[in-house]
Nucleic acid binder design. Sequence first.
DNA 1: TCCATGTAGTCAACTTGGTTGTCTAACCAT
DNA 2: ATGGTTAGACAACCAAGTTGACTACATGGA
Lengths: 149, 149
Amino acid sequence: MEPVPMLLAMTYRAMGDQFHDRLRQIGLEPLRPAHGYVFRFLKEKRATTVDIGQHLGVTKQAAAKIVNELDEWGYVLREPHPTDKRAQYVTLTTKGRDYLKFADNLWSDLEHEMAEAIGETTLGTIKTGLAEYLQHVHGGDQPGLRPVW
Amino acid sequence: MEPVPMLLAMTYRAMGDQFHDRLRQIGLEPLRPAHGYVFRFLKEKRATTVDIGQHLGVTKQAAAKIVNELDEWGYVLREPHPTDKRAQYVTLTTKGRDYLKFADNLWSDLEHEMAEAIGETTLGTIKTGLAEYLQHVHGGDQPGLRPVW
DNA sequence: TCCATGTAGTCAACTTGGTTGTCTAACCAT
DNA sequence: ATGGTTAGACAACCAAGTTGACTACATGGA
């Protein structure tokens, strides 16, 4: 049996590939995972580019690139920060929220298919097990997202 | 609860970080995951650069770069293919096998600590569950390893 | 209040680790 | 024999990060 990290990497890759393929079939713009993580982050909190960079685990310059792309494509827009004239809040547009909603449904489909393949309870054990491990090593704070290669 | 792929990504990252930290503590050259996957692959089968590329999920040119590095650093060497004059088998040197052995022990330690944190049986379910899912989506052939970001 | 220090965002140069495209030599199936 | 395929190498390019520098603004003392 392969070591755990390899199983994680392969499963992550396999699910991501399926997600990407189906998005393309539907004709939706195939954003990268990082874009998706930004959506998910913005759904929960108002955030600046710097915040996004920290969340993703990249520099603010790298985060700015991603935000620029999302802006060009119409998924987010920048609003002036109410108290800090340097800063801008990045917020989801309707297009961005629609995309996120669609993506969430697609992930849900894939997860459901996974449950069919390996069993509902097994999938449940995997999810709670991994979450518990993350809690154990990282405590409360958000673990890094970007896979190292 | 986060969607499964995010849990996979975060756990992969967390384990990889721990592995990397401990390697550095010991003072061993901190190779990237891709190098480690090559070692593991070469332990099981004789392989050419093309084989390695397929295993990693990258082009043969990218694989050639990695093999070149490992060659320079003394972890692998190239042997003429017995029947195909174009091809070369990439094989582990003693240094390569030693590194792999050490890394295997370290992974085993980390896995053991994971088992302590979430329970032996839970870890077992995770491993077999993921393997089963991979079997389901990819059949016999090896899934890609490189995470998409 | 003024000033020193710190931060958000942008621009530019560079690095890394991949890609595609092309070529040669060798293989292999008709 | 020969036409199509493959292993490996070389080159040009690309994508997505990095570091560094700079401006405008913020903030917390003396």
